[in-house]
């Protein structure tokens, strides 16, 4: 089976800027400025096979979202190489890739355009998208008036109907109501069964991870802490959270020691 995503030795370092830089500051400091960095990801190696479903778990600030952004190409890794195969769809946030002033319907076109689809390709899928998200007449209201749940519905409908080769979802499904979440997971299961898309999703819902993902990757302090069968990894993860809830890692700047 071919590999959909190959991450080898990925590291990501962010420069801490503090306040907004200005040209004046640049001239005044003239190279004397001490640059501070944080290591968001360290030496990540993950391979995802075609058609596989992988969930990513970890505490806040562990680097899960940074990892997704590197996979989809919004961030460029500081070190390491990445290979992806096929067309991607990313749901990094509610309403990402939407324009707030356009209506839901217009946003289907806009979002499709952001994905690089043509008008004909979008229109082909329009009816299915509208039917799946179940927004009724709200589809003709501007997206800025939408609730979190409505944004998620529209985003997920576009994401799955456009049949991407790789689907990346950050923790956004949580805002859907129980019935719609059920619908989403059923849809993802159908995609998985058909084997058409590779799915990588970040979740804090351990039932989703164990029930749906073939494999779970636990990211801790910017590194792959565990990578294996979902049940095994989730059990370990929950054990650690239960064992030391007061020791949950705080947000801290991880500096490069080398």
């Amino acid at each position: 089976m071919k590999d959909a995503i190959v991450l080898s030795h990925i590291s990501k370092r962010f420069e801490l800027t503090g306040t907004a830089p200005t040209i004046k500051k640049l001239i005044l400091s003239a190279g004397r400025v001490k640059r501070q960095y944080t290591e968001a990801l360290k030496d990540i190696n993950i391979t995802v096979k075609n058609g596989e479903s992988v969930s990513i778990v970890g505490t806040n600030g562990s680097g899960k979202s940074t990892l997704l952004r590197i996979i989809c190409g919004v961030y460029k890794p500081t070190q390491g190489s990445i290979k992806t195969c096929g067309r991607l769809y990313t749901m990094l946030d509610l309403g990402s890739g939407f324009h707030p002033d356009l209506t839901g319907m217009e946003n289907i076109y806009f979002n499709g355009a952001v994905l690089g689809l043509s008008k004909a390709e979008i229109e082909e899928r329009l009816d299915n998208i509208v039917a799946f998200c179940g927004l009724g007449n709200y589809i003709n209201e501007p997206v800025r008036t939408y609730s979190a749940g409505m944004l998620m519905r529209l985003g997920f409908a576009i994401a799955t109907e456009t049949a991407p080769d790789i689907l990346l979802i950050d923790e956004v499904l949580a805002v859907g109501d129980a019935a719609f979440q059920e619908k989403c997971y059923a849809r993802m299961a159908a995609i998985k069964a058909a084997g058409t898309s590779t799915i990588v999703f970040v979740t804090h819902d351990m039932h989703a991870a164990t029930g749906f993902a073939d494999r779970t990757v636990w990211i801790r302090e910017g590194m792959v802490y565990m990578d294996g069968g979902s049940r095994e990894v989730v059990n370990k993860y929950l054990q650690e959270l239960d064992a030391s809830p007061e020791n949950l890692p705080e947000f801290r700047i991880r500096e490069n020691k080398s």
């Binding site: 989809c72 190409g73 919004v74 991607l88 990313t90 990094l92 946030d93 309403g95 990402s96 890739g97 952001v114 994905l115 690089g116």
Partner: peptide, 9 residues
């Protein structure tokens, strides 16, 4: 900004 930060294109 939102588009750049969240969608690859």
């Amino acid at each position: 900004r939102d588009l750049i930060k969240k969608v690859p294109f």
